[in-house]
Computed example of a mutant assay.
Amino acid sequence: MHVRAGTKFGLCLLLLALVVIGVHGKEEHKTNKSHAHEDEKKNVEAKSTTPVPCTCGIFLSGQFKKGSKAAPKGEPVITEEQDAHFAHNSIGQRQCANKCIESIIKYLPKSADIICSTIDRDCHKEKAYLFTKNYNDKWINSNMSAGRAFCCKDNKPYKCPMI
Rank of each mutant, 00 (worst) to 15 (best):
C54Q: 02
H24I: 07
P157W: 04
G10Y: 06
I104D: 04
A149V: 14
C56E: 05
R121C: 01
E45C: 07
I21A: 12
K125V: 03
K125H: 12
A146E: 08
H24W: 15
T49A: 12
S68N: 03
P76T: 06
H24S: 15
I78K: 09
D39P: 03
G10E: 09
I104L: 09
L14Y: 06
K30Y: 11
I21N: 10
K41C: 11
K30I: 09
I114A: 04
E38V: 15
G92S: 09
C12P: 03
S90E: 15
G25S: 15
K159L: 10
C151E: 00
Y129D: 04
C152H: 00
S61E: 05
L13V: 09
I101M: 08
H29K: 14
G57N: 03
Q63D: 00
P157D: 01
Y129N: 06
P72C: 07
M1T: 10
W139I: 01
K156R: 12
P53T: 07
K26G: 07
S61Y: 03
T7E: 13
N89A: 08
S90G: 08
K110T: 06
H2T: 10
P161M: 00
S61V: 00
T55V: 01
K127H: 05
S111P: 01
N136H: 13
K106C: 01
D83I: 03
D39Y: 11
Q95N: 15
L14F: 10
G62P: 05
H124F: 11
I78S: 09
E45L: 14
K156M: 04
P72F: 09
I163E: 11
K66F: 08
H35A: 14
R4W: 09
L60R: 03
G57A: 02
Q82T: 10
L108P: 01
H88C: 12
L108K: 08
D154V: 00
K65P: 00
K125Y: 03
D154N: 15
S61C: 02
A87T: 14
L60W: 01
F131M: 05
T49L: 14
N32S: 11
N98Q: 12
V44M: 11
E81F: 07
T118K: 14
N98M: 10
E75R: 12
D122N: 15
T7P: 02
H85E: 12
K26H: 14
T79V: 13
L11C: 10
E75Y: 09
L130C: 04
I105D: 05
K110H: 04
Q82Y: 05
D113W: 00
T31V: 14
G6F: 11
K69H: 09
S90F: 11
D137W: 06
Y135M: 10
K127E: 15
H2V: 12
T79W: 02
G74D: 02
F131V: 02
R121W: 02
L18E: 10
C54N: 00
N136V: 12
K133P: 05
G147M: 06
V44F: 10
S68I: 02
S111C: 06
V23S: 06
F64I: 03
A146N: 08
Q93K: 12
P51L: 05
H85I: 12
L130E: 00
S68W: 03
L14P: 00
A128F: 01
Q63N: 04
H124R: 09
K138A: 14
I119L: 02
W139D: 03
G74S: 00
P53R: 08
C12V: 11
V52S: 02
E27V: 13
K41V: 08
L14Q: 04
I105V: 13
A87G: 14
K33D: 14
K65H: 04
I140L: 13
